[in-house]
């Protein structure tokens, strides 16, 4: 913090103690937080996206911790040291200090550097190298936003409607299921859409979120890395039963996935021809108002 800053600025005697204290505490606390708290941070590491976000959160926590320590130390120190000793003392004026240019410049420069670092790091994380970010990429993501193995990804369509999720697997005959099952270790390409109002597809443990907007296909990539069951939720208020708009998500072994999808195809085969042909978006007959 610039108040405890060194370079060329004379640190006022009132601050010398806390400047050292800040330095020591930051140097000790920050690595401890990164090492011990970082791996515990949500959204966990059940997918590449989750892992990437966890890393991201760890970096931000590491930046915030020394700032927080600095501010707390400064305020606590100031409030104790500069408090009026008694009623009369509190009514005498302090010295008329109006500002020091060097402190201001140092402060602005520091915050600017932190902002640049954060923005650069955030932008870097948006480029999916090893790990995708998991967010909705719009209907036609540009190539730099795609993960390396995007072409071999398993396409899964997510359809939101009031108040349930359904899933279609276009490479498996466009079969429609009410449960989301994914093979572990396989890149998945979600194409999220809605047939009534705006929903938001949130696979909590996989750290995937993409708004389901009617008339729009929102693409998101993720690679689950652990076999695990969890819940899909709706993260955008979509009316009465928004809180109940959940569905089950299972990440299973590739063999189990193949068995499951074969079973689903067989189970739904009798009604498959009633479904509309697979499309990125569906336009139901416009109704003026749902009652």
């Amino acid at each position: 913090m610039s108040t405890g800053g060194e370079g060329g600025l004379k640190v006022p005697p009132e601050l010398r103690r806390i400047a050292w204290l800040w330095l020591v505490l930051s140097v000790v606390a920050t690595p401890l937080v990164v090492i011990f708290v970082g791996p515990l941070l949500p959204p966990g590491s059940a997918s590449d996206a989750a892992h990437g976000q966890q890393q991201d959160n760890t970096v931000m926590v590491a930046i915030v911790v020394p700032i927080m320590i600095g501010l707390l130390l400064y305020f606590i120190n100031a409030l104790i040291m500069f408090r009026g000793k008694d009623e009369a003392d509190a009514l005498t004026d302090g010295p008329a200090i109006r500002g020091q240019t060097r402190v201001m410049v140092l402060w602005i420069a520091t915050t600017f550097v932190i902002v640049l670092l954060l923005a650069a790091w955030g932008a870097y994380e948006l480029f999916p190298g090893e790990e995708g970010a998991g967010g909705g990429l719009g209907s036609a993501p540009i190539s730099v936003a795609l993960p390396a193995n995007a072409s071999s990804a398993l396409p899964v369509q997510v359809i939101g409607q009031q108040w349930t999720w359904t899933y279609r697997y276009p490479t498996f005959g466009g079969v429609e299921t009410t449960e989301l099952v994914l093979p572990v270790g396989q890149e998945v390409r979600f194409s999220v859409t809605s047939i009534d109002v705006i929903h938001s597809f949130w696979a909590v443990h996989l750290a995937v979120k993409a708004d389901a907007v009617p008339g729009n296909a929102n693409v998101a990539f993720v690679k689950p890395v652990r076999e695990e069951s969890s819940t899909v939720r709706c993260a955008e208020l979509c009316g009465l039963w928004h809180g109940h708009m959940t569905s089950r998500l299972r990440v299973v072994s590739p063999a189990a996935f193949r068995a499951w999808i074969a079973h689903e195809r067989e189970k739904w085969a009798p009604i498959q021809h009633y479904l509309p042909a697979y499309k990125p978006t569906y336009a139901p007959e416009p109704t003026y108002r749902a009652e």
Binding site: P42, P43, A49, A50, G52, Q53, D56, N57, M60, L118, W121, G122, A123, E125, L126, A133, G134, G135, S200, V204, A207, V208, K209, A235
Partner: peptide, 9 residues
């Protein structure tokens, strides 16, 4: 932070 916002949004 756009990547982290995916989970917190």
């Amino acid at each position: 932070d756009a990547p982290s916002d995916v989970s917190t949004h």
